[in-house]
């Protein structure tokens, strides 16, 4: 099951952006938000979910400047321990390193993307390491252009962590600063196009 999922993810991640153009735009992103975690190994399929704060710092490349582009992104994340459930357990927090890729679709000024990749994580206060696949669909819009080359996008993403023994689904605010090869101006930044 997990292997099938991995193959599907790899195909969607790498095949769709093949039509991307050659332009390369590096970017940095910071994200922050919440995630809800639940396990799958107990008697019920999904146990009591619990929420926690998440944050990450990412660096990446957008390859292509047309309708379709490809994104390649890596970074580190922290998912805090969740709140306590009624049985006084919580899901442990963890640090992780991630690497992901995927297609980006530009619709007018709205960017929609789907990243797929893997994370290597370690639980807080332990020597327990684990790996999992994840998907991260997201949307962003440019809100600011500064200098001749830099743009700032704000958006939302909803990462889904496909952990071996649990799932985490999140909602994050994403702020991205991109360096563009060509000048970018937008009507709402007060400069003519």
């Amino acid at each position: 099951m997990r292997i099938n999922l991995f193959v599907l993810m790899a195909l969607s991640t790498f095949c769709v952006p093949l039509s991307a153009g050659p332009a390369i735009a590096p970017y940095m992103a910071v994200t922050g938000g919440m995630a809800v975690t639940a396990e799958t190994d107990y008697e019920s399929f999904i146990t009591t979910p619990a929420s926690s704060a998440v944050a990450s710092v990412q660096a990446g490349l957008t390859i292509g400047d047309g309708l379709w582009a490809a994104m390649l992104q890596g970074g580190q994340s922290y998912q805090a321990a969740t709140s306590f459930t009624r049985d006084w357990y919580r899901y442990r927090g963890f640090y992780s390193l991630n690497l992901a890729a995927g297609p980006r679709l530009r619709l007018n000024h709205l960017d929609a993307y789907l990243l797929g990749g893997g994370m290597l994580a370690r639980y807080d206060l332990s020597f327990s390491y684990f790996f999992f696949l994840y998907l991260e669909p997201g949307l962003s819009v440019p809100v600011l252009a500064f200098g001749d080359r830099f743009t700032v996008n704000l958006g939302l993403s909803a990462p889904v962590y496909l952990r071996a023994d649990s799932y985490s689904v999140g909602l994050r605010a994403v702020a991205t600063v991109t360096y563009n090869e060509t000048q970018k101006v937008f009507p709402w930044t007060g400069r003519g196009e």
Partner: peptide, 20 residues
Amino acid sequence: FTNALDDSINGYFSYEHDSG
């Protein structure tokens, strides 16, 4: 940290069940 990558990936794909 990254030294754990290979073993962790193997663990992910071979994992079946945990007592909890």
